[in-house]
Amino acid sequence: MTTAVVTGAGRGIGRAIALRLARDGHAVAVNDVDKSTAEGVADEITAAGGSAIAVPADVTDREAVFALVDRTARDLGSVDVMVANAGIAQVKPLLEVTRDDLARIVDVNVFGVVWCLQAAAERMIAQGTGGKIINAASIAAHSGFAYLGHYSATKFAVRALTQAAAKELAQHGITVNAYCPGIVGTDMWDLIDEKLGSYLGNERGETLAQYSQLITLGRVQTPEDVAAFVSYLAGPDSNYMTGQSVMIDGGIVMS
């Protein structure tokens, strides 16, 4: 059985990814900074007959991320897939972004991805059987969005890290790709709707409705839509794919 680590898996997209990978037959290490939500998702997986452990950790803490990978390998046998999903957003005009704002979002969205990349690659190289590293990017990794400029910058960084890591790790049989969701029905988008609406003069729900008009397929994305693509990236059908940051957004940003 292959083993996957999913960070930020206590809710939203991360939870959907953890549940989907478990259904695909992976043992799953469910990580979240919130211990109770991580345990809840791990319990869902085991109750359905899957194999899972909950490993609370803050992805901004490099030592904690390496410990997460070490525990996963010890308890589940290996680390074959790393899904660096944990991330945060903040809605704010660039002219108002503070040092603390920027430090926090970079710490989670960029440093967190780097630490996951390093810890997983080190383990996969030692195992000698290759592996798959999958990073959370965004449509904001391809097009910078107003009032989400510093968030967009972190996702552009994830895209660059994905490309560079793919080139460096190919010799070890490790592929590195990223998924780029659009407007997803999660707590993060509830926050974006509320905060962005305050700048645009919209009532709650109006901004989400406005932006949803950009979706070619005509509906807001579900976490399960994202998880289905991550399932592909984590499986053998994507073995010849690396260095890609792929839009899975219902047709908002096309390239």
Rank of each mutant, 00 (worst) to 15 (best):
H150R: 04
V28M: 13
A29L: 12
I133D: 01
G250C: 11
R123T: 12
G218K: 10
I105F: 03
L208I: 13
S255W: 10
D193F: 07
G49T: 08
I125W: 03
G250P: 06
K167D: 12
D58G: 11
Q118G: 05
D43W: 10
A146S: 12
A57W: 01
V6N: 04
G218V: 13
S255K: 10
Q163D: 06
V246M: 07
G10M: 06
V41S: 03
A52Q: 03
F66H: 15
G131R: 00
G87R: 01
K132A: 14
S78L: 11
T162K: 00
W189H: 05
I17M: 09
C116E: 01
L214K: 11
Q244M: 13
M82K: 03
E39C: 13
L19Y: 00
K132D: 07
I45R: 01
R104F: 03
R71E: 14
E44V: 07
V6H: 04
T242V: 14
V81S: 10
G40F: 08
V65G: 02
G77P: 08
I248V: 15
V253C: 02
A227Y: 00
T154W: 05
E194Y: 04
Y232H: 11
L21T: 04
S212N: 13
G251L: 12
R104G: 01
I174Q: 00
L200K: 12
A228S: 15
S78T: 15
N202M: 15
I45N: 01
S138F: 06
N31T: 15
E203S: 14
I45Q: 00
A166G: 14
H142W: 12
R62N: 04
T7G: 08
R11W: 07
S152W: 01
E168D: 14
G112H: 01
F229M: 13
L94H: 06
F111Q: 09
G251A: 09
A146R: 09
M1C: 10
Q244L: 12
F111L: 14
N85Y: 04
R23D: 13
Q210H: 10
M188Q: 10
L117A: 00
I125R: 11
G40R: 09
N135R: 02
A178G: 05
I17A: 05
V230Q: 00
V59Q: 04
I174N: 01
I45P: 01
F145K: 05
T222L: 14
L169S: 05
V176F: 04
I133F: 06
V108L: 04
P93G: 06
A165K: 01
V246K: 04
L117V: 03
T207W: 02
G185C: 06
V106T: 08
I53D: 00
A73W: 04
Y147R: 05
L169R: 02
R23A: 15
A86P: 11
Y147I: 11
K195W: 02
M82H: 03
K195E: 12
V91I: 14
A121T: 06
A170C: 07
A227G: 05
S255T: 12
T154K: 05
D225H: 12
K35G: 08
G250R: 05
G112W: 00
A27V: 11
D70R: 14
S255I: 14
I192F: 00
A86V: 14
F156L: 08
S78R: 12
